[in-house]
């Protein structure tokens, strides 16, 4: 085991634990905060893997923007939250499906790649940037349209609409 392995196991354990907590915690706001930890941990994983650019974007976009939005949304809708989780039978099914996904994915991935040590040699940040604006310019342009549409849609959906009338259930 190299030091990188040890480092990754440490960060990975934190990430996994935070992820588990974020989906099991009954207190809404806490669950959101654990998500921050989990996604931050994921950024850490990227760093350990040597993908600095991706780690940075993950940190900026997710921890910086998305999670803040999520937290706001949680705070705004807190009064509406009755029961947070589904029924226990439903949760058992959920657990089984989740375990199935883990086993299936983990099994096939590890079977394909094995445990042997390998060199970490990803593309440089320059190369990634060049590729995004070179090879991948078409999906990138579509992505910009998607972001524009999402922004417009979100603003429209959030600002217009009929409120719940009193007396209605």
């Amino acid at each position: 085991m190299t030091s990188r392995d040890v480092l990754f196991v440490a960060v990975g354990l934190i990430t996994a634990a935070a992820a588990v907590l974020s989906v099991t915690n009954r207190r809404v706001l806490h669950a959101g905060l654990w998500l921050v930890v989990a996604l931050g941990g994921l950024a850490g994983c990227y760093l350990v893997l040597g993908a600095e650019l991706v780690a940075l974007v993950q940190l900026l976009v997710y921890v910086g923007a998305v999670v803040v939005l999520v937290l706001f949304a949680l705070m705004l809708t807190r009064s509406g939250a009755g029961e947070v989780d589904t029924s226990s039978a439903h949760r058992w099914v959920a657990g089984a499906v989740g375990a199935g996904v883990t086993v299936l994915l983990g099994g096939t991935l590890v079977a394909a790649y094995g445990w042997s040590e390998r060199e970490v040699a990803g593309p440089s940040n320059d190369a990634i940037g060049e590729q995004i604006f070179g090879t991948w310019v078409w999906p990138f342009e579509l992505l910009s349209l998607l972001l524009l549409a999402a922004l417009v849609a979100a603003v429209a959906v959030a600002t217009t609409g009929h409120r719940r009338q009193e007396g209605e259930r």
Binding site: T86, H90, V93, A94, V97, G100, V101, L104, T108
Partner: peptide, 19 residues
């Protein structure tokens, strides 16, 4: 919510069938 159970459960079942 139950629709999501169908979606994810279905995927697992399909994947298992496929494998």
């Amino acid at each position: 919510a139950p629709g999501l159970v169908l979606v994810l459960g279905g995927v697992v079942v399909l994947a298992v069938i496929g494998v």
